[in-house]
């Protein structure tokens, strides 16, 4: 079944990296997939988003207009996308930056103070991976192990980077409200 995921936040929050980790993990699992970024002025500080589709069948449309999964790291993106999530879908949001108040009862909405956790744990810029860890825990998108392998491959042997990202991933995975 198609798993379509939207990652959204400010440029600089690591939306692209985070979504690429997931895309590469799907590749490692021999899945069909597409990764589609928003492009243009967004990359210079505005909102940024990436759509990832994962399936066993070839991906037809790579555009995600109503995602099954949404990871959102800033308030403008939350407001923009929360009502587009599919009924039955799952939302992971950064509760240290977003006051989530949705009337929707047909979706699961999980907050994690990813930015605060990153700061508290000396993982500056790691909120994206913390949120990803939580997303992996709360959904069936991919396994934690394959995400780790993907991070390792993408970090091309930079051990400190790998260690930090693993720590961030674990923090998110083990978080409980």
């Amino acid at each position: 079944m198609l798993k379509d995921i939207l990652f959204a936040g400010f440029g600089g929050q690591g939306i692209q990296f985070c979504s690429k980790v997931v895309a590469n993990a799907a590749l490692l699992e021999n899945k069909e997939l597409s990764w589609l970024p928003s492009y243009g002025p967004e990359m210079r500080g505005g909102t940024s988003n990436c759509a990832v589709c994962i399936d066993d069948e070839p991906i037809a449309s790579p555009l995600v207009s109503s995602p099954r999964y949404l990871m959102v790291l800033n308030a403008p993106s939350y407001d923009k996308f929360i009502n587009l999530v599919q009924p039955g879908g799952t939302v992971i949001y950064d509760s240290s930056l977003i006051n989530a108040d949705t009337e929707r009862s047909d979706i699961d909405v999980f907050g994690i103070p990813a930015t605060r956790m990153a700061n508290d744990n000396d993982l500056k810029g790691g909120a994206n991976i913390i949120a990803l860890g939580y997303m992996i825990k709360k959904t069936d998108i991919l396994s934690l192990d394959i995400i780790k392998t993907s991070i390792e491959k993408m970090s091309k042997g930079r051990q400190q980077l790998i260690a930090n990202n693993f720590r961030a991933l674990q923090l998110g995975y083990e978080y409980s409200e």
């Binding site: 690429k20 895309a23 590749l27 069909e32 997939l33 597409s34 990764w35 589609l36 970024p37 492009y39 991906i59 790579p62 555009l63």
Partner: peptide, 10 residues
């Protein structure tokens, strides 16, 4: 088109 150019696929 811009979308195909920017998109990643295996």
């Amino acid at each position: 088109d811009g979308l195909l150019g920017q998109m990643m696929e295996p």
